[in-house]
Design a protein around this nucleic acid. Structure first.
Length: 106
DNA sequence: CTAGTGACTGTTT
DNA sequence: AAAACAGCCACTA
């Protein structure tokens, strides 16, 4: 089983209406310190999948910026808001209330 | 094999 | 609080 598959498994276990961070995903997958690889894995998602990638944000509660454009960022925000995840005025989610599995200490 | 790259993060300015 | 720095590590050319 590839490390990508392990990341995808963890992301699939994020409940609706909750979000997690890249670093958290890596740790839960048994690969602490591989946060960047989680982002890399999500960027390489195949066309057909059942991975709720939009529930993964960075540790600050922000939607991570892609190099290309802002298209996916807007989509991700809409998907989360549709699930009831609130964004503050700065465009960030409150990990202490919707973070999963636990609010990261910060 | 080396070098460049990136959906990251913790520490230090 | 925000930005710069510095580790991080798999993937690609």
């Amino acid at each position: 089983m590839s490390s990508y598959e392990r990341f995808y498994e963890v992301v699939r276990s994020i409940p609706e209406g909750r979000v997690s961070s890249y670093g958290t995903i890596a740790s839960l997958a048994g690969l602490p310190g591989h946060a960047r690889q989680v982002g890399y894995a999500l960027a390489a998602l195949p066309d057909e999948h059942d991975v709720p990638w939009h529930r993964v944000v960075n540790v600050r509660g922000e939607v991570s910026t892609r190099r290309g454009g802002h298209t996916f960022e807007r989509i991700q925000r809409v998907l989360l808001e549709d699930e009831g995840v609130p964004f503050d005025q700065r465009g960030r989610v409150d990990l202490s209330s919707v973070g999963w599995p636990e609010p990261p200490a910060r």
